[in-house]
Nucleic acid binder design. Structure first.
Length: 425
RNA sequence: GCUGGGGUAGGGUAGCUGGUCAUCCUAUGGGACUGUGGAUCCCACGACCCGGGUUCAAAUCCCGGCCCCGGCCCCA
């Protein structure tokens, strides 16, 4: 009986993996240019870490189990909590602010659909130790840069939880939660109905959904959140980032303290959000001292689904040889790998000459380097361009140069990206 | 959790008002072809999602499950 992979998981073929690696490394490169350093945390944590952060309700969506020592363990559903836990455990005395990024798989037990899987990958950033306007603007600008680096046009919406929270202050907790939910859904009618006996709010809250920052001033009495937001937005203008003010972004969780933002891309159906973040305080929940922070997460799988970027083509070379010169052929393949640094394969199946070429074609080789008695005698190789069919007997050094020149002539981005790409294990 | 559509070789499909050996294309391996690929021909390989029911007979009809693709809910 054939076994299939578990629901909501995926296999990635070589072509898909290559593309994922390439995009991943571009994003990595951007984060590093902004001075962020990569961290890794465990794939599983104590379940408590996530329930402390997000409440017991998330247990339904967690992969949990008891380990052999009876501990309650959960596969990580996200990385902000693990990274902040790590900060409290390992880095709380590091000089602030601390700039961290991560790229990891996460697990959520949810119904799979477009852009939603049970194992998915998140790229994220946490700027720990500051919630200044400068910090917020940097984090948002970095998110925008990462997304646009992948060739995606996304809409950036920025809001501030202080405004809604200030307005809802007098209501009981359940009403507040419901109002927040309706704000998030932009459900004007629902809001009016919910707040029908709250004349002070019934119109102001729905009005906030469409308000820009000036209009918001007339809706709320509390000027402070708006000033904070204005300071951040002013800096973002200097970063050259385009955004939309949206007080309907509520990101319901208690630990968000102020600015919140989301990015949306077309072409993803119901799961159109590719990035979400904001300013929060979590460290004290995990036993650290109160530490303002901000960060965001990018849904890597959704990015891949809409981004138009393809990895640069790296030439493929096949050494085609006759059985009586196997040793020479192996020597040639070593030179191609070591000196030219191109991906080089050589027949291991005992195929006949014609079939070796046929196979080279089938796997999409760009060049065949032909080694036979003639070549060995002349101390040369025959370099065949598999695309044009043209071929020429030349010295191995020339062949190496020719192939390397091809690689450098390809249309692909700046060298740092390429070297990062090639340095992968 | 709710809901619509769907599961036939590795991929794509025909058959699906029950009845020869389940069709065709493609991919893969080999041969025709012992120094020149993409063509052609031949051979090989390989499937009815799982379980139960109805029936002399089930890929086909019925029930349940699993899975896939969407939508809702949720979304740290």
């Amino acid at each position: 009986m054939k076994l299939n992979r578990p629901r909501g998981t995926r296999d990635f073929t070589p072509a898909e993996t290559e593309k994922r690696r390439y995009i991943e490394n571009r994003m990595r490169g951007t984060a590093e240019h902004w001075g962020y350093e990569e961290v890794k945390t465990p794939t599983f944590e104590h379940t408590e870490l996530f329930t402390i952060k997000s409440g017991e309700a998330i247990l339904d969506e967690l992969y949990t189990f008891k380990d052999k020592g009876g501990r309650d363990i959960a596969l990580r559903p996200e990385l902000t909590a693990p990274v902040l836990r790590m900060y409290v455990n390992e880095m709380s005395v590091s000089p602030k602010p601390i700039r961290l990024y991560y790229f990891e798989n996460c697990f959520r037990y949810e119904r799979p659909q477009k852009g939603r899987f049970r194992e998915f990958w998140q790229f994220g950033v946490e700027l720990i130790g500051s919630d200044s306007a400068q910090a917020e603007a940097e984090v948002i600008a970095l998110a925008a840069a990462m997304v646009s680096d992948t060739g995606i046009e996304a809409n950036l919406h920025i809001g501030h939880l202080g405004v809604v929270r200030g307005l809802l202050h007098g209501l009981d907790a359940q009403m507040q939660a419901e109002a927040m939910r309706l704000m998030d859904k932009k459900d004007v009618d629902g809001l009016r109905m919910l707040l029908s006996d709250q004349p002070g709010l019934r119109d102001r809250l729905p009005a906030l959904l469409d308000a820009d920052i000036d209009e918001a001033r007339s809706i709320t009495d509390d000027a402070q959140p708006l000033e904070e937001l204005q300071a951040t937005l002013t800096l973002l203008d200097h970063y050259g980032i385009r955004y939309e003010v949206d007080f309907g972004i509520v990101r319901g969780l208690d630990y968000y303290t102020g600015m919140v933002f989301e990015m949306y891309a077309a072409g993803l159906g119901a799961q159109n959000q590719i990035c979400g973040g904001g300013t929060y305080r979590l460290a004290q929940l995990f036993g650290g001292s109160e530490t303002p922070s901000c960060g965001f997460g990018i849904g890597f799988d959704r990015v891949l689904e809409v981004c138009g970027i393809e990895p640069p083509h790296a030439p493929r070379v096949v050494v085609v040889y006759l059985p009586d010169v196997t040793e020479d052929a192996i020597r040639v393949s070593r030179r191609l790998r070591d000196d030219a640094g191109v991906r080089t394969t050589i027949d291991i199946s005992g195929r006949k000459f014609g079939q070796q070429l046929k196979h080279a074609d089938a796997i999409g080789a760009d060049y065949a380097v032909i080694v036979g008695a003639k070549e060995v005698e002349a101390g040369m190789v025959t370099l065949r361009d598999m695309h044009t069919g043209g071929q020429e007997m030349i010295g191995l050094d020339d062949a190496v140069l020719r192939i390397m020149g091809d690689r450098e002539g390809e249309d692909h981005p700046a060298s740092h990206d390429e070297s990062a790409f090639l340095d992968l294990p």
